[in-house]
Structures are given as C-alpha cells and as structure tokens.
Amino acid sequence: MIELKKVICVLLILVMFFVVAGCVQPDDTGEDEQGIIEEQNELASQREFTASQVNSAVELIEEEGEQAFPQFREKNSQWFHDDFYIFVWRNDGIRMVYPPNVSREGQDTSNLEDFNGKPTGQLFIDIAQSEEGEGWIDYYWPKPDETEPSNKYTFIKAASFDNQTYLVGSGFYVNDYIYTNTLEDVDYTRYGNTSVGYLIHPAKVDRDLDVDFSFTHVIIDAGQSIEPHIMKNPEVYYVLEGEGVLYIEDVPFELSKGKLVHIPANSKQYTENTGDVDLEIFVIDQPAWAKENEQILE
C-alpha cells in the first residue's frame, strides 16, 4: 500500500488527465461551473458563519462578562444547535464554557491534544495571545456523541472583560462539506483472484457529488489475471505497484509502476499479473463504472 500523499498526487494527476484529454465532459459547461461555485460557496458560507458567530460571542462577553455564559449553553439557540457550539476558555487554559458536556467545564485544557497528538490546547492559547488575537486551526476531534475523530476547522478569537482575558472559539467538520476518502477506509469486494475497492463512485456515497466518474483501486493476485471483457466507456489504468501485461484488442502493453494507459471505449481488454507480488492499479471510468456497461467475454 502506498503512502497517502502519493495517493493524493496520483489522484490529482489522473483527474487532470481526464480533463485535458476530454474524457470528462459535462453536458452543459455553464451548469457544471455553477455547481462548482455553489459547492465552494457552501464551504465558504460555513466558514463565514462560524467566524461571525465567534465575533458575536466575543462582543457579548466584552459587554456582559461571564453573565453571558449561560446563553452559550442553551440548546437549540443561535449558540448551540446540531453539532455547532461556542466554547470559552480563560487564557490560562481553564475551560469555562463547553455546551456538549458541561461536566468538563473548569478543567485545565492547556495540554489538550487531538486524536493525532497535535497540541491543540496550547495552539488555541497561542492564537488568542498572538498579535492578531485571532486565527484558524485544523485538527481531529470527535463530533458530539461520536467516538471516531473527524477533521475539524476552528476559529479562535481573544476576548476580555474587566481584568480577565478569554479565548472564544467554534468550528465545523470539513467532511460535512467536502468528500474525502483514503485507501485505508475503502471497502473491498473480492471477485475470484481480484480485489476491487472504490475510492469514489457517485452511487456509493451518501451525498450528491455532481460527478460522473469512478476511481477504483484494483488488486490482482500474483500470477493471476482479469478475464477478457469489453467496457462501453473509456478507462484509464495507472499502475501503483507490481508488473503485468494489459491486452487491448490482443495487443500487449507492459505494465509497471508509474505506467498510465488509456483504454478506448468498446475495446476488448484483459490484464495479466506476470510478477510475484500483487499488481495494484488505479482505474478511472467515465461514466462511473456500471455493470450494464461491462460485457464479459467467453
């Protein structure tokens, strides 16, 4: 299995290949571009909303001091609803307001770390004490009532009342707005001597991605092969590991790490793993892979 950074680079290269080659072509360019803008605006709107709420909370604290704190704990209010909430610390790291679990208020959180060991507590304090007095930070933190961490993006801003200084913050979970995946999280299906897992397939995610292609990780066992078949749509193979031979209309194309091959639509194809280790391939289908587009040959 290759490193995540390498996977991301390969993903970008292959998607760019499709765009340049014209394999991914929207029916209406104007509508597609508008869809992209709307998706970007949804993320941007949440970022602006979060910063605006923190700014408003800071203004309230600087007017009322700790008398404002009960408002932040009130459920289904502008300050605390769904998985959104405002939290407040003193600048020494003592947690003053934590709506998801008020029993944790009063704790020293200056040494708080995220799931990956990032010193978020000290970083929060550093942001509030910086010259700007505000800033964004990303880290991994569970959503309310969940145990598995998610990528969170949080805005921190300093506040003061009388002689007491605070840091005020709120964040959102970026995966609610942007789809991400890793090979470690892919579910694989076994077909004979081959394992198939979708990094992205519009029919296999719980949101509308506004895409019509699939990106698949295919693993062929050492010394084995994929049976001859025809795809009605074009495909692109990119070899991650191993070696083998891809036959297109019975013409052999050697496969080795880093090799990219475009397979025209309606071409007879089959692949052999000629090595003694797994042959790992990224496969892009446009439109997204569908059983009705595949014909198995005898």
Rank of each mutant, 00 (worst) to 15 (best):
123 L>H: 00
291 K>M: 10
67 Q>R: 12
16 M>Y: 10
217 H>Y: 13
211 V>A: 03
15 V>Q: 11
84 F>A: 08
240 L>G: 01
11 L>G: 13
131 E>I: 14
118 K>G: 04
233 N>W: 11
13 I>C: 06
88 V>L: 06
203 A>Y: 07
209 L>F: 09
72 F>W: 07
86 I>S: 05
32 D>S: 15
99 P>R: 11
221 D>E: 15
177 Y>P: 05
207 R>W: 03
288 A>H: 14
97 V>Q: 00
218 V>Y: 00
184 E>N: 11
108 D>Q: 03
44 A>V: 01
25 Q>F: 07
40 Q>R: 08
125 I>S: 02
235 E>F: 10
99 P>K: 14
52 S>T: 15
56 S>F: 06
16 M>K: 13
223 G>H: 05
190 R>V: 15
91 N>E: 08
52 S>C: 12
51 A>V: 09
24 V>A: 11
28 D>Y: 08
216 T>C: 13
23 C>K: 10
238 Y>K: 04
258 G>R: 10
136 W>D: 03
134 E>Y: 07
80 F>M: 05
212 D>R: 12
5 K>S: 14
286 Q>W: 09
226 I>Y: 00
59 E>D: 13
115 F>L: 03
208 D>L: 08
296 I>R: 01
13 I>N: 13
15 V>W: 10
272 E>D: 10
51 A>M: 15
44 A>P: 00
263 I>A: 07
77 S>R: 04
46 Q>A: 06
198 Y>D: 15
69 F>H: 00
120 T>Y: 13
140 Y>C: 00
55 N>V: 03
17 F>T: 09
265 A>P: 11
268 K>G: 05
115 F>W: 12
170 S>T: 05
205 V>G: 09
